[in-house]
């Protein structure tokens, strides 16, 4: 058996090597779409302007085939007693926070997907069902998703919502910046369009950043000198201005490192061109071969 199997060993090893290198080149060009265009769009939210009329919630539902109900229902301010989070049937919600130093002027904060420049969901998704489009929208592809919910583990803002109540075709639901229905063709997101106070401004992200800093500079007593989303997790398409500390408005305190962060780097290090796994394979093969040789010699 000795000779025969040793020759086989070499032959098969060669085939495996070729196979692996083929595999690795395919992997390098995996088909996940992540465009970070220079003139990508964004939305600037001025929480000091927002009056909590919740018309954005109404418009959002209308734009995503969810029954919005009667518009008068949104005048009910008792919902602000509890902090609400986006749901499978509400991609955006507005919360209210009282400023202890200015109790008559509460801050209203609209919550929705931040549309990160380096989205953790996009990096995490096992099938690459998320993509970042030209205008900055991070969208989800129903045709690919397998419902593993790793995007929910990854998202630092707890945004993707899963339809737990559905046994079949449950969806991951979140704000898509109205990509499909409006912004793909140059339109404006529904929430921005309806906002009476123009607390939401839709425009090119770099212009919005200029605008945000200009507002802070002109009204330093009105705003905290921080644009949330400018650098957080490597930058987000949605940017926020506020009068008080963002942690008090329930924004997570995040570093400027992109959210996928070390995990993506580590993953690429372990799999860089398949060299480490292939080397391990070769090493183990070598050990096996040497041990077998000794063994065969002993036996013979």
């Amino acid at each position: 058996m000795g000779k025969q199997s040793r020759r086989d060993f070499l032959k098969t090893s060669g085939l495996i090597g070729a196979g692996l290198s083929g595999l690795s080149s395919k992997k390098a060009h995996s088909g996940v779409k992540k465009i970070i265009a220079d003139d990508r769009m964004g939305v600037l939210v001025d929480t000091t302007l927002c009056i909590g009329c919740r018309r954005c919630e109404y418009a959002c539902k209308g734009a995503h085939d969810i029954d919005p109900g009667r518009i008068e229902q949104y005048d009910d301010r008792s919902v602000f007693k509890e902090m609400r989070r986006p749901q499978y049937n509400a991609y955006t919600v507005v919360n209210e926070y009282t400023d202890p130093e200015n109790p008559d002027n509460p801050s209203n904060v609209k919550v929705q997907c931040m549309h990160c420049d380096h989205p953790a969901c996009l990096s995490a998704c096992i099938v690459g069902a998320f993509s970042k489009e030209e205008n900055g929208a991070v969208i989800w592809d129903e045709g690919k998703c397998i419902g593993c919910r790793y995007c929910m583990i990854a998202c630092p803002f707890q945004i993707p919502q899963f339809e737990y109540h559905k046994a079949l075709e449950p969806e991951i639901r979140k704000c898509d910046l109205c990509w499909e229905s409006r912004t793909k063709d140059g339109g404006v997101p529904a929430c921005v369009e309806i906002c009476p106070m123009e607390a939401l401004v839709y425009g090119k992200r770099y212009e919005l950043l200029q605008l945000a800093h200009e507002r802070i500079e002109k009204n330093p007593e009105r705003y905290l000198d921080h644009v949330y989303g400018e650098n957080e997790v490597g930058g987000t398409s949605w940017l926020y201005l506020a009068a008080q500390d963002f942690t008090k408005l329930d924004f997570p305190q995040l570093s400027d490192e992109p959210a996928p962060g070390a995990s993506e780097k580590l993953q690429h290090a372990i799999f860089s061109y398949f060299i480490p796994p292939a080397s391990l394979f070769a090493l183990l093969g070598g050990i096996m071969w040497i041990n077998r040789k000794q063994n065969t010699t002993e036996e013979e």
């Binding site: 995996s30 998704c125 096992i126």
Partner: peptide
């Protein structure tokens, strides 16, 4: 789907 839609960045 995981055999046809690959995401090389995904640990999962």
């Amino acid at each position: 789907h995981m055999f046809i839609y690959w995401n090389g960045n995904s640990v999962l």
